[in-house]
């Protein structure tokens, strides 16, 4: 049975993480989720808004919640952990009636703020189940050694996010194992990559993301798998910057998990967006054997 969700793509999905957006939409279609974009959605304000004012942040979020409340859906999903944290934190704070009122005044309309809000990863695991997804993997990624990198806020703070374990999450581990990849233990799976400091304090990101790359390589991984646009950008697009700053020479492809699920279910082409990755994954995928080697075509 198809599940209907309001989809909040997030701004990066239209730019630096467009392959996350396109592969997420395609993956959901394949796995029986109907995603309907929240019409005319606006930016949630991301880190800058909550760092400037919680009322501004919640009001920007609330416009999207209010629009979604007029849709015939069972909840809101987003692929981006930063959007997710803003949506869920704002909703959580609106449990306090006084704050809820303030937000409605600034928004200029009523909002219930009661729709369930989840990550795409969460509905995949909870609505479909790992076992079912394993059955869909007709082209398992046998031989691909990966480390799962959740980033810091997919599961944090736990009393707001309410999904998986905040210190040792397993959703991605289980999902990637189910589609045939060899998932290596990874101590840094929830450590911060430096997030939005990439532009302003490159030194901080070089150190934090550098640590993630070093640990992935030391674990023997062929690639890193993420669920966060900012983590992916720091580890992939900035990998050359980081190598230069740290004197390292990593060439680690950094996939979105949605791309790998597409490959494992036999889907290829533009929607998977492998050519959008800065560190090319093609020679790695070709080395896995004939099945994965077809991804170029």
């Amino acid at each position: 049975m198809s599940r209907r969700y309001a989809y909040y793509p997030g701004c990066s999905g239209q730019g630096t993480s467009r392959e996350y957006d396109s592969s997420t939409r395609a993956m959901c279609q394949e796995l029986g989720f109907e995603l309907i974009d929240i019409p005319d959605w606006n930016c949630c304000g991301s880190t800058p808004a909550h760092a400037v004012d919680h009322l501004l942040s919640a009001s920007l979020v609330a416009r999207n919640l209010a629009i979604a409340e007029d849709m015939d859906v069972e909840g809101i999903v987003t692929p981006c952990p930063s959007c997710l944290k803003n949506l869920k934190t704002s909703q959580h704070r609106m449990l306090r009636p006084e704050f809820h009122q303030e937000v409605q005044r600034v928004l200029g309309r009523a909002v219930r703020a009661d729709l369930p809000i989840k990550s795409v990863l969460q509905v995949l695991v909870e609505d479909r189940g790992i076992g079912w997804i394993a059955q869909q993997a007709t082209a398992p990624l046998t031989g691909l050694k990966v480390v799962p990198y959740y980033g810091c806020i997919m599961n944090r703070p736990p009393d707001v996010m309410r999904f998986d374990d905040p210190e040792n999450p397993m959703a991605l581990d289980n999902l990637l194992t189910a589609i045939g990849a060899e998932v290596l233990p990874f101590a840094l799976k929830t450590d911060c990559c430096g997030a939005s400091l990439g532009t302003t304090r490159r030194d901080v990101v070089a150190r934090l993301s550098g640590r993630v790359l070093d640990a992935a390589a030391a674990a023997g991984a062929d690639a890193i798998v993420t669920a966060c646009p900012l983590c992916q950008m720091n580890l992939d697009m900035r990998q050359a910057q980081i190598n230069k700053a740290n004197g390292s020479s990593h060439r680690l492809p950094v996939f979105y998990y949605s791309q790998l699920i597409m490959l494992a279910t036999g889907q290829q082409g533009e929607r998977v967006g492998l050519d959008k990755l800065c560190v090319s994954p093609f020679s790695l995928l070709e080395s896995l054997g004939p099945q994965a080697g077809e991804v170029r075509s």
Binding site: T47, H50, A51, K85, C152, I153, R156, P157, P158, P166, E167, T190, C192, G194, A195, S196, L197, R201, V204
Partner: peptide, 11 residues
């Protein structure tokens, strides 16, 4: 300002 809002402290 350098705090990355990673929520580890809160957690």
């Amino acid at each position: 300002w350098l705090c990355a809002s990673c929520e580890t402290c809160t957690t």
